[in-house]
Each structure stands twice: as C-alpha cells, then as structure tokens.
Amino acid sequence: MVWWLAYIALGLFGGFFAGMLGIGGGLVMVPTLTMMFAAQAGFPAAEVLHLALGTSMAAIIFTALASVRAHHQHGAVLWSVVVQITPGILIGTLVGTLFAGSIPSKPLALFFTAFVCLVAAQMIFGLKPKPARELPGALGVFGVGTGIGALSALVAIGGGSLTVPFLTWCNVRVQNAIATSAAVGFPIAVGGSLGYIFNGWGHAGLPPGSLGYVYLPALLWLVPSSMLIAPLGARLAHRLPVATLKRLFAGILIVLAAKMAWGLFA
C-alpha cells in the first residue's frame, strides 16, 4: 500500500509540471521510479532504469492527452506543426528505444543525468534561443522530429525540453510553443512505449506485472493522478510566474538525477 501511495504522489507532482511546462513529466518520473524500483524486492538491479524509462514513457501518453486538451481549449496548439512533425517523431522514438534497450544501466544513467543537468541549466538561467528564423519546410520539420523523438525516447521525456526551444527559435510564441510541445508529446510517448514494450518482451527476471519494460502496477496509479492534475498545471501556466517555478523544478531535477546515479553506482 505504501508504494501505491508513492506512485500516486509522483503522478500528481509529475503531472502538474508536465501540464505547466510542457515537459511530459519524464524528467522527474524516471529518477524517482528508478529509486522506488530499486528499493523493492523482485526488481533486477540491472533493469530498474529500463523499467523506469518504459513506465515513465507509458505514463506520458495519458499525461499528454490531459495536458493537450487543456491547451487546446486556450486555442494555443499549432496543429499544422504537430501533423508535420509526427512522422519523424514516431521513427525517432522507435530508434531511440532500440538504442536504449542495448545500453547497460550505468552508462544510460550517466547520459540521463548529464541530459537532466543541461535541461536544468536551461531552466535556471533562462537560456533560450533568440527567434532567428521561420519554421523549416516539411522535410526540415521531419528531420527535427526524428532527432527530438530519438533523444526523447532515450531519456523517456515528452520532448518539451527540445520542442519548446526549437519552436521558440522559429519565432513561435512561448505559449504556443508549450502547447504544441504538449501535443507532440503524445506521439513521442506512443512510439516510445511501443519500443520499450518490444525491447523488454520476454526478458527473463522482470517483476510480475511487467509488459516488456513497462511496469503496469506503477502505471495503474501514476496515470489517474497525473491526468487529474495535468490540466490544472496547463491552466496555471497562463497565470503563475512560470520562470520562477522552472528554477525551483530544475533544482529538484538535479537532486533526483544525482541521487539516482549515485544509487545505481553505489
């Protein structure tokens, strides 16, 4: 029962910031789930990070749906961009999950931690590209989508930390960039989840209730809580001091990622 409550609390926390910042929640779910799985019996140490990545990616499917609905009600989603970028996203996520499944936990943890630190630095110092150009053509958007999808699947995020800067660089208003990123998070999560299920299918030693690298008992509690709170985060994105909350969230991310990496190596 204690772990169910922990999954619910994590879903509320990750879902709120996913809706507000358009990040999908994976940056906080992956290190936290890794530590939760490592603390429970029946989870092989070599696979706890892969299980956390797969479970987080599956949870993002539902978080993205709840978040994008709220953003769509504000008329902020650029659906033409979503349609153009989705084919590349799907290809990229499948490639990214295949690569992630072949990497041992420790190197993958180092890569994830380094990525989190870069994202956190971006949030803390407000680093963002200056609007310097327009959106590229269909082929260019497809290529960008492939890269975003691959990297997002590798670290199990909804792509917001990549999609938002790209759209901002292309002269898209910040609110529209966040809303469109939330919508793009759905195909990222679908493609990534399928990849992690495929890569972990039939893998010996996974705990009961696993569908490939997706741990269903955790997903069962993460989804309702994250879907419940994500729309609230999306609505408050238009009212609260998002820059201040980003810095606070960035500090939490660094602590969680460092603790996760320390636990895996220790």
Rank of each mutant, 00 (worst) to 15 (best):
L27E: 10
Y215M: 00
G101K: 10
L27I: 14
A64M: 04
G149I: 04
L253H: 05
F112R: 07
G88Q: 05
G25T: 02
L253M: 14
E134Y: 09
Y215A: 01
A114G: 14
A156T: 05
K106E: 13
R247P: 05
L110T: 12
G14Y: 08
M123Q: 11
M20G: 01
V81Q: 06
P231I: 08
P107I: 01
V119D: 14
A100W: 03
H50S: 01
P107G: 03
L245P: 09
G15W: 03
R69N: 14
M20Q: 01
L108C: 00
K259T: 12
H238V: 14
F186R: 05
V116T: 03
L65Q: 10
L228P: 07
A138W: 14
G22L: 02
G202A: 08
L118R: 08
V95N: 05
A6D: 09
G159M: 10
G42C: 02
A121N: 14
G25I: 01
Q175W: 02
G200P: 13
T55W: 04
H74V: 00
G205N: 15
L206S: 05
P231A: 13
L53F: 06
V68H: 10
L256C: 11
L194R: 04
P136V: 04
W4L: 09
F37Q: 06
V119A: 15
F142G: 07
E47I: 00
A70Q: 05
P187Q: 05
T97C: 07
A189W: 11
A237T: 04
A258Q: 12
V144W: 12
H72M: 01
K128I: 00
G54E: 04
I188P: 10
W221Q: 13
M29C: 05
V144M: 12
F125V: 01
G22Q: 03
A58W: 08
V95A: 13
G209E: 13
A218W: 01
M1T: 07
L253V: 01
S152K: 09
P241Q: 03
I103M: 09
T93E: 07
T32R: 06
L78M: 09
I124F: 11
W221Y: 15
V164S: 09
L206N: 07
V77F: 07
F17I: 00
L127G: 06
I89L: 13
L118E: 10
G14A: 15
I178W: 08
L118H: 13
W3Y: 15
T97Q: 09
G15T: 02
Y196M: 00
T146L: 14
